[in-house]
């Protein structure tokens, strides 16, 4: 498998300025991050607020350029200005706020915005728009105004807008943070389906641990560094560490961990309620 996203000693620093625009210091948002994401993988990046996960996401799309180190997306260095549009086409990005990323005033026009920018032929744009809206299950809303949609539906439109650009990789930067539980489930199901049917690489950035249990790989970030890396099970088995990184560990995982510490024969890293129930039933 090809490497889809690769970072090497990635560092990003903000300049702190006083009121007269003098630089009074620098703060590191990303500190020596090395990650490698293979094509077709579902990767989750976990971290609490201010851990640098969103800053990292913006590097994958060349919205931010590294202070030090290098980012390769689909084999292209994000620093090369002539590759900028290629990079952005390869790694589509979905943002947190559903309202602030929809440009069109009609759903289908918004989905067509990306392909228009890429200079795709008119007929092909229509095909892509239809395909993408079908893929996210929003085809019946194609003539609607985005203002009348729910948060979850808006995010699905935003996802369709990204798929219409035929990216190899989709970066979702906390796509569910502003949604209610129903909308959140809606968006996650859409992402899951896309991954299965379109075989795109998915990078999900979130602070909800429940959302990463289906991921192939999980990275945990804290203070701009990648502090944990592994499969969801490996990550979830280290409850104490996760709490130290201020993540909300799911209740099942905590319960299973406590039972295990009390001596019940339960393996570490329980992800789902059903899993624990089955294990407990088998105990007798």
């Amino acid at each position: 498998m090809e490497s889809m996203v690769h970072t090497e000693n990635l560092v990003f620093e903000y300049e702190k300025q006083d009121e007269e625009n003098h630089v009074i210091g620098r703060s590191r948002a990303i500190d020596e991050v090395n990650i490698d994401i293979r094509e077709g993988q579902f990767v989750a990046i976990l971290g609490h607020n201010g851990s640098g996960k969103s800053t990292l996401a913006k590097h994958l799309n060349a919205i931010l350029l590294p202070t030090q180190g290098t980012v390769w997306v689909n084999g292209q260095n994000t620093r090369q200005p002539e590759k900028l549009w290629n990079v952005r086409q390869s790694a589509g990005m979905v943002f947190q706020n559903p309202d602030n990323q929809i440009i069109g005033t009609v759903v289908e026009e918004d989905v067509g915005f990306g392909p228009e920018n890429l200079g795709v032929e008119t007929d092909r744009i229509w095909e892509r728009v239809e395909e993408s809206l079908r893929a996210v299950g929003m085809i019946e809303y194609r003539y609607h105004s985005p203002n009348k949609l729910s948060g979850g539906q808006k995010q699905r439109v935003a996802i369709a807008g990204v798929i219409a650009m035929r990216p190899k990789c989709i970066v979702l930067d906390e796509p569910t943070a502003m949604l209610d539980p129903v909308g959140r489930r809606e968006v996650l199901r859409t992402v899951e389906e896309l991954r299965r049917q379109e075989k795109v690489t998915v990078i999900l950035i979130t602070h909800y641990m429940e959302e990463v249990i289906d991921a192939d790989r999980v990275f945990v970030m804290d203070h701009g560094r990648v502090v944990m890396e592994g499969t969801p099970r490996e990550i979830f088995s280290q409850v104490e560490l996760l709490k130290r990184y201020r993540l909300d560990v799911p209740q099942v995982t905590i319960l299973a961990d406590k039972l295990r510490k009390r001596g019940l024969p339960i393996p570490a890293g329980i992800l789902k309620k059903e899993e624990l129930v089955e294990l407990l039933c088998r105990l007798n």
Partner: peptide, 19 residues
């Protein structure tokens, strides 16, 4: 940011969905 992420770079080389 969202527009740039979707490759918006002005009118040059842009096609129209609804010409």
């Amino acid at each position: 940011m969202a527009m740039e992420a979707r490759c918006y770079h002005g009118g040059e080389g842009r096609t129209k969905m609804k010409p």
